[in-house]
Design a protein around this nucleic acid. Structure first.
Lengths: 226, 226
DNA sequence: CCTGTAAATGAATATTCTTCAATTTTAGTG
DNA sequence: CACTAAAATTGAAGAATATTCATTTACAGG
């Protein structure tokens, strides 16, 4: 049956076209921002007529949503892959932070569309974008839970607060770094962030912990003697 | 000389009109957001013709900038006043946090215009809005420096990182609270935020204290024996 | 009261999103 | 291969809205 073949080819062609439109939109939106980007320009870059874009996407917002969805999808994948490669909760968290910050800084014009587009307040939960966002932060949640089990995080602070602090600090930090302190490097920020949020695993602390271990051993021996 | 009188009256009238336009814009922008708000609607609400708005403001962005500027101006004043009323660095910081969060949550549609409008990358430093933003965060900086002098903050983390974490966590937290956990209260978030950022009593510290207790007890008994 | 300047107006213009009637392409069929 | 119905595409027209500007109105100073 060649019909299936042909159908598949056709579908593929459509998907390619959709891909091309999203890719053109992504590039232009990230360069100019939402309001300065015109549908005509996107259509031209994708090699289609103005009206064609509206066959694939309901309107400009919907297209921007698709761009954001693709962004989150890729972001989650590279984040998870990178986390899996590292060993040790702190190393995983630091990777996640560096990864997030560099992506935010490279794509801030894409990300700044989020509140603009998605803050509908009604339809947000249940939306594709919401689910993709959940999937992304879940990468953090798993690592943070693991770190908690290992005793690296004081149990006083709820996970969702830590999560908001983790991502909020970085989103804000990325913005000030872009605007003002362009030359400061990401690593410094990330190290400070992680050590503030998660039980300060600095060298000095490790040494202090060792000292405490030794003192406990001494206490044990002295108590035996007494 | 009645001329001065009359001139003053006229100038006052103009300033009142400018005020009226800003106030109408503020109300409508905070209700509908930037893109859904039309200049015609603002003009109507302010009781002027469409063209009149453009005598006072170059364009829609410029008007939105004026609204943001007024917002930051008021925000800084109420923040400083509130801080002055409290005593103790932690109380001041908690007030500042609660104050910030409630204002953000009440005015998020105004605030979400910030990246839209001001992320010019070139003209930002030196702009009015930048100066007002600096003035606002300076309120935090003064309190944090004081807290640092009092030993409430570990000196490891630079002030600018703490500042980004402070405001970033809240901006992000406010958004998730608006979108998802509407019923959770601000105080819980703020308490967790402050205790994570400032003067955290970690598990390791508790353990250290326990060991000291044991050793002191042992020392007492040894002294008795000798 | 008169006059020149500043302020205000709103109809006209310009830009850009979105729709849709007409056209082209494609898949399936005899 | 020719034909047909459905799907996809086109680009010009329509609609919404920001912005301009020629004209009118209000006012301060004489």
């Amino acid at each position: 049956m060649p019909s299936r073949q042909k159908t598949k080819t056709r579908r593929e062609k459509l998907e390619n076209r959709e891909e091309a439109i999203i890719e053109s939109a992504r590039a232009i939106l990230n360069e100019k921002g939402f309001s300065k980007t015109t549908m005509a320009e996107i259509a031209r870059a994708a090699g289609v007529a103005d009206g064609t874009v509206y066959i694939y996407f309901k309107n400009k917002e919907d297209l921007a949503r698709a761009v954001l969805a693709q962004f989150y999808d890729k972001l989650t994948e590279t984040a998870q892959t990178g986390v899996d490669k590292r060993s040790g909760s702190i190393a995983k968290l630091k990777f996640l932070a560096r990864h997030h910050m560099s992506r935010v800084m490279d794509n801030w014009r894409i990300l700044e569309m989020l509140p603009l587009i998605d803050m509908k307040m009604d339809s947000y939960e249940g939306s594709d974008l919401y689910k993709l966002n959940r999937a992304y932060v879940a990468v953090f949640d798993r690592v943070a839970e693991r770190a908690h089990e290992e005793g690296l995080i004081g149990s006083g602070t709820p996970l969702w607060v830590l999560r908001d602090m983790f991502f909020g600090s970085m989103d804000y930090g990325a913005r000030t770094m872009l605007l003002i302190r362009q030359d400061d490097n990401i690593n410094w920020f990330v190290d400070n962030l992680i050590s503030t949020l998660f039980g300060r695993v600095e060298p000095s602390d490790k040494r202090r912990a060792d000292v405490v271990d030794r003192l406990e051993a001494i206490a044990d021996r002295l108590e035996d003697k007494l």
